[in-house]
C-alpha cells in the first residue's frame, strides 16, 4: 500500500482562526508516550499524525485535527456552531470532601475556554476523496467527550441533514459516555440518536463509524455500535462499562488493555482496525464501494 506523505495537522486549524486547543501531557518541545514512556519530540509526533513512532500509540486528536486528517482540504463546512450546553437540572450540590466544587455551568465555561470549542462534537459536511458525506466528530478534550443534550442534538441534526442531502453519515466517537450532570436528559440522547440512525437506515444511506480512544458507556451502547461499517483505531479503549466502574463494582482488577480495539475485533464487534495513516484512504474505498 502506498504510504502517503503525512498531512501536516495544523493546516486547517489555523484557517478556523482559533487557538490550538490545549492537550493534556503535551509540553512545548517534547511529550512522553503514555504507553511505552518514550520521550518524543513534539515536532516528530505531529509529523507522524500524532502516533508514537516507537510503539504505535495513537494520541488523541482534537475534532478539528481529525477533520484535517480525513476531509479533503477546504471541503469542510461546519453546521450548528451555536448550540451549547445548559444546566437543566441545576447541578450544584457536591460532596463536601470533593476538591472540585465548581457548578456544572462554571465547568462548561472553563471547558469552553480551555478547548476553544463550544461543545464536545463538531458536525458538518465535507468530502473524502471527493465523495460527499455528513460528519459528526467527537472531541475528548471537552469534558471527556461526554454526551449531554447539546452533543445529542448536534449529532441528531447531522444525521437528519445526511438524510436531507442523501449523503452517507460518518461519526468518529471518543467519549467517556453520557454526561452525568444532565441526568436522564443524557440517557435519552441515546434513544434520540438511535432513532435518527434507524431513519437513516430506512433511507438506505450507509453509516460508517470510527471508534477512537476511548469509546465507552452510553456512546458505545448506542451509535458507536450501530454502524453498517465499524472501524477502530489501534489500541483504543472500547467497552460498555469503563474499567474504573468494573473494578469498583466487581471487585476485580482488569489488566491494562483488556477491553480495546483488538479485543473488540477478536470478539466480532467491529469490522477492521485501521492505522491512522490509512484512514482517509480506507474511508475513500468504503465510500466508493457503497456509492
Amino acid at each position: 500500500m502506498a504510504k502517503e506523505a503525512a498531512v501536516p495537522l495544523t493546516r486547517q486549524v489555523a484557517s478556523h482562526g482559533e487557538e490550538k486547543p490545549a492537550r493534556p501531557s503535551v509540553g512545548n518541545i517534547a511529550v512522553k508516550c503514555p504507553k511505552c514512556k518514550e520521550i518524543l519530540y513534539n515536532r516528530d509526533v505531529e509529523k507522524n499524525l500524532k502516533v508514537c513512532s516507537r510503539c504505535n500509540y495513537h494520541f488523541r486528536l482534537t475534532a478539528y485535527e481529525r477533520i484535517d486528517l480525513l476531509a479533503d482540504p477546504g471541503s469542510f463546512t461546519e453546521m450548528d456552531t451555536d448550540i451549547i450546553s445548559i444546566d437543566p437540572l441545576q447541578f450544584t450540590a457536591f460532596p463536601p470532601s470533593y476538591s472540585d466544587q465548581r457548578t456544572y455551568t462554571d465547568k462548561l465555561t472553563a471547558e469552553r475556554e480551555k478547548t476553544g470549542l463550544k461543545e464536545g462534537v463538531i458536525t458538518g459536511h465535507a468530502t473524502i476523496e471527493t465523495k460527499p458525506l455528513t460528519l459528526a466528530i467527537m472531541d475528548f478534550h471537552f469534558m471527556g467527550g461526554s454526551m449531554g443534550s447539546a452533543v445529542g442534538e448536534k449529532i441528531t441534526r447531522a444525521i437528519e441533514s445526511a438524510i436531507t442531502h442523501q449523503t452517507p453519515m460518518f461519526i468518529t466517537t471518543t467519549s467517556g459516555g453520557a454526561r452525568m450532570q444532565e441526568g436522564l436528559f443524557s440517557l435519552m440522547q441515546l434513544a434520540k440518536i438511535s432513532a435518527a440512525l434507524a431513519k437513516l437506515g430506512e433511507a438506505h444511506l450507509p453509516y460508517i463509524v470510527l471508534l477512537t480512544d476511548p469509546t465507552t458507556g452510553g456512546v458505545s451502547a448506542s451509535f458507536a455500535m450501530q454502524g453498517d461499517i465499524t472501524i477502530a483505531e489501534p489500541g483504543a479503549l472500547i467497552c460498555f462499562t469503563g474499567p474504573r466502574v468494573i473494578e469498583q463494582f466487581m471487585h476485580i482488577k482488569l489488566p491494562e488493555g483488556t477491553v480495546n480495539s483488538e479485543f473488540a475485533l477478536q470478539h466480532g464487534m467491529i469490522d477492521a482496525i485501521t492505522h491512522r495513516r490509512d484512514l482517509r484512504q480506507t474511508l475513500g474505498r468504503i465510500l466508493r464501494l457503497y456509492a
Binding site: I238, C239, F240, T241, I246, V259, H267
Partner: peptide, 18 residues
C-alpha cells in the same frame, strides 16, 4: 458490567435494541 459481558458484546446488544 462484567468482563464476560464485554466479550459477548454488551454495548452492541443494547445498541441493537435502541
Amino acid at each position: 458490567p462484567g468482563l464476560v459481558d464485554e466479550e459477548r458484546g454488551q454495548a452492541e446488544a443494547i445498541a441493537s435494541s435502541l
